[in-house]
Each structure stands twice: as C-alpha cells, then as structure tokens.
C-alpha cells in the first residue's frame, strides 16, 4: 500500500485579536493511493480547514503533512503553489472557472502554469475533456454551459495535470440531483482508474459513493470507517 497523504498531529489555531480558535487538534490521518475518501462533519467541525491544509492553500500551526513524499507543512508560498499545480487537482462547490474563457482554455490553465508547451497542452486538455464527456463543448464558455457541465470542466481541469490527489469541496453542492449523479459517476470512474480522491461533503448520499468516510467534530476525527465495497483497509 502506497501512502499518498500522511498527517501527523496537525493542529491549526486561528488568532483573531485576543481570541484563539482551535480549528484542528492533533489530526492523524493516512490516505493511500487509489483511495476514495469522504470527509464529513457539521459546519465548524474543521473539515474546511482540513481541506485547505490538504490543498496546500493553508499551512498548519503544528504537525507534519507529507504529500506524495514531500513535507509541505512548513513549505514556502512558492513551494505550495508548485504543489497545488503538480500534485493536486481542485474541484470547488462554485466551479470556479474563469469567466469569458472557453472550456478548453480553462482546462489548459494549470498546464500553462506548469510550463507545458502549447501543442502538448492542447492535446492533454482535450483528452481530459473527453474523459468527462465534454469533447463536444470545448469551445463553450462557462456561461454557455449548465452547472453540471461546468463542474465537469472543473473536474477536467483538476485531472489534466495528472495529480497525486483530487480534492473536491462539496462538488455537488450547487447541482440538481440529476447533475450530481453525473458528476459522482465521473468520480466513480476516476476512482476505478486508480485516482486518489478526497471529497468534502455533508450529504450522506454523496458520501455513499466513496469507500471510506472520515467524520470530523470539534477539530478532531470522530470516526473513520471503511465502507463495505472497499478493497483496501484504511490505515
């Protein structure tokens, strides 16, 4: 079993003036390659903070975070940007595509920052859009696409760099149930192809697609359960 994410004693404390808020308290977590994990918990449980740290958007106050063999807990902002670009694929609740920019260009964007040449970039982007079933829509701009299609473009964008982990923050939160099923079917497929996926959600229906559910409460892991279909035991 190859461990992709290792968290050891991750603690995050926010200071607002005199008040200290402990968002995460000594989190220990291992996620192996190919796992499909749901992070659940009520609001204020620390799951968003968890997501930001996993996504290299934020650094922990204390603890060790090893992503794909690289220690990122104390990394510089520049190093974090490189991690986000090469090792992570982000999917947001609000899609977060660039407006007035075609699906193809949106998907190419991470490759631009990775310094991939134009021709190769285009090929990879088209390939990623095919993987989410949007090869017919590559010249469309976000405002010309439905919510479900926009989220699939976002998935293609997360996928295109071949990341170690795909992180999705409430990916179906803005979608109707029909589109949610489409999107989750894609995640299912990506999981079967061997991608490591972490989804933050509060919907049990969505979590049910995954193989492992990690429940947060008050900044701690309350429960870590493997679902029946899981091929691998959680660490």
């Amino acid at each position: 079993m190859l461990v992709v994410i290792t968290l050891q004693g991750i603690t995050k404390i926010y200071r607002t003036g005199e008040v200290e808020v402990t968002a995460l308290q000594g989190i220990n977590l291992h996620i192996a390659r190919g796992e499909f994990v749901a992070i659940m918990g009520p609001s204020g449980s620390g799951k968003s903070t968890m997501m930001n740290i996993l996504g290299c958007l934020d650094t922990p106050t204390a603890g060790e975070y090893i992503l794909d063999g690289v220690k990122v807990a104390q990394a510089s902002r520049k190093a974090l940007a490189a991690m986000r670009n090469k090792k992570l694929g982000f999917i947001f609740q609000g899609f977060n595509l660039l407006p007035r920019t075609t699906a193809l260009e949106n998907v190419e964007l991470p490759l631009i920052y990775a310094g991939v040449k134009r021709k190769e970039r285009r090929e990879k982007a088209i390939e990623a859009l095919k993987a989410v079933g949007l090869e017919e829509r590559i010249r469309h701009k976000p405002q010309e696409l439905s919510g479900g299609q926009q989220q699939r473009v976002a998935i293609a964008r997360a996928l295109v760099t071949g990341p170690s982990v795909i992180l999705a923050d409430e990916p179906t939160g803005n979608l109707d149930s029909r589109s949610s099923e489409d999107v989750m079917a894609i995640f299912q497929k990506l999981h079967e192809q061997g991608n490591t996926i972490v989804i933050v959600t509060h919907e049990p229906d969505i979590a049910a697609y995954t193989r492992r559910i990690v429940r947060f409460k008050d900044g701690r892991i309350e429960q870590d359960e493997a679902l029946a279909k899981s091929e691998e035991a959680p660490a």
Binding site: N85, K86, F92, N96, L98, L109, P110, Y113
Partner: peptide, 8 residues
C-alpha cells in the same frame, strides 16, 4: 482560482 490551480 489561478492560485488554487498553481499560479505562483
């Protein structure tokens, strides 16, 4: 968005 997907 740009930063999240890896812009330095």
């Amino acid at each position: 968005i740009r930063k999240a997907i890896g812009a330095r």
